[in-house]
């Protein structure tokens, strides 16, 4: 029987993969995709918690919808920024963006 823990483990694993991607990838688009993976891990968490902890209410699903909407806005702004930097430098590789030292 699949329970809450399985879903939370799935969510945590997805979150971990996304986190690894953010730090390991050098391509800005790939990093954006990794962040999306992290946000979707959170959505899995919210929906599963809603189902198992509080089946009568729909607060977690509501939160997941908010996350989806805001993530869409975030990605559209993010892609616009990446396009604008690509026009300038002809690159989306983070290693090329080192005018300021970290």
């Amino acid at each position: 029987m699949i329970g809450l823990n399985h879903y939370l483990l799935l969510g945590t694993a997805l979150f971990g993969i996304g986190l690894y991607g953010v730090f390991a990838k050098r391509n800005a688009i790939a990093i954006l995709m990794s962040v999306e993976l992290m946000l979707n891990a959170v959505n899995v968490n919210f929906v599963a918690i809603n189902r198992f902890v509080q089946p009568a209410a729909s607060l977690g699903q509501l939160f997941a919808i908010f996350v989806i909407v805001v993530a869409a806005a975030e990605v559209s702004v993010g892609l616009a920024l990446i396009i604008s930097i690509y026009r300038q430098r002809r690159s989306v590789n983070l290693d090329d963006f080192n005018l300021m030292k970290w």
Partner: peptide, 11 residues
């Protein structure tokens, strides 16, 4: 610098 700052802040 500004474009770079925007991208870094986004990530």
């Amino acid at each position: 610098l500004s474009a770079e700052a925007g991208l870094k802040y986004l990530i």
